[in-house]
Amino acid sequence: MRVGQERKEMIKTVLLIVFGIIIVSPLVLMLVSSLKDDMYQIMEDMGSIRAFMVTEPSMNNYREILSSESVQNFKRFFLNSIIVLTGTVTGTLLISSMAGYTLHRGTLAIHKFLLPLIISLYIIPMESIMLPLMYQVMKWGISDTYIVQILPFIASPIYIFLFYQFFRQVPISLSEAAMIEGASFWRIYWEIFLPINRSAVVTVAILQGMDAWNQYLWPLLVTQTERVRPMSVALASFSGTGVVYWDRLMAASVVMLLPVLVFFLFFQKFFIQSVASTAVKG
């Protein structure tokens, strides 16, 4: 029976790999195009199977966008993106989880109204408040800073709600016990709710990390100089009103994707470890 089990696992894994490759095949197209040196070749090949094939792979596009002579100060943009991402993720984890916890465990009378209010705030489409908000931050004098790219996102209705939903699953007995021992409201959050819900923390870190990394319209509106501008906005430099520089655009997209992948793998580790540790405890 053991052996049969293992073989089944094996088949499952192989099938998942094959299916997974089909799923990500559109991204192969991006990778292949980024290795084509001739932009006109890319345009000629588009729309046929040749888009997936490259005869003479070249790293020229990567060299061009990363070289120090490039007008795009790519390294600076990269650093800016990292700073914004770090600030946004840590901020969200703290602010939104505290709010989610308070909404679940709190006793203040306003909480009953707050939850629906916060969820309905998520409904507001960003496109519709972007302009008034831009006018505001320009008046407050915080445009063209890191902080203006971080603050609007760290109290996130959707992640407050996510934490709230995950916290609801924590057995009441756990916190009851802690309360009887005299633990404060804050300590129950910090020492019980957060650690036990590591999967929620990791989930939010990953999702908010993606969001922060790919944020486009907002940084476009509130940054004016290279000093604080993120990578996603820099990518816009490869397309003008008429022409798109496919070669460099594809290479830059690959460069943009890699750090997110590393970030994801890093947090995945926590994810898998947290399962292992609960298993040991149990």
């Binding site: 770090t86 800073t145 971080i150 910090w190 000093r227 540790s277």
Partner: peptide, 27 residues
């Protein structure tokens, strides 16, 4: 384990807030 994460988080907050205030002055 969880303590480590918290320390990491705190450090990250400190670093990022430091960076925020280190933004260049617009002349």
């Amino acid at each position: 384990m969880s303590k480590k994460i918290l320390v990491c988080l705190l450090l990250a907050v400190l670093i990022s807030s430091g960076m925020i205030y280190a933004k260049g002055q617009s002349e």
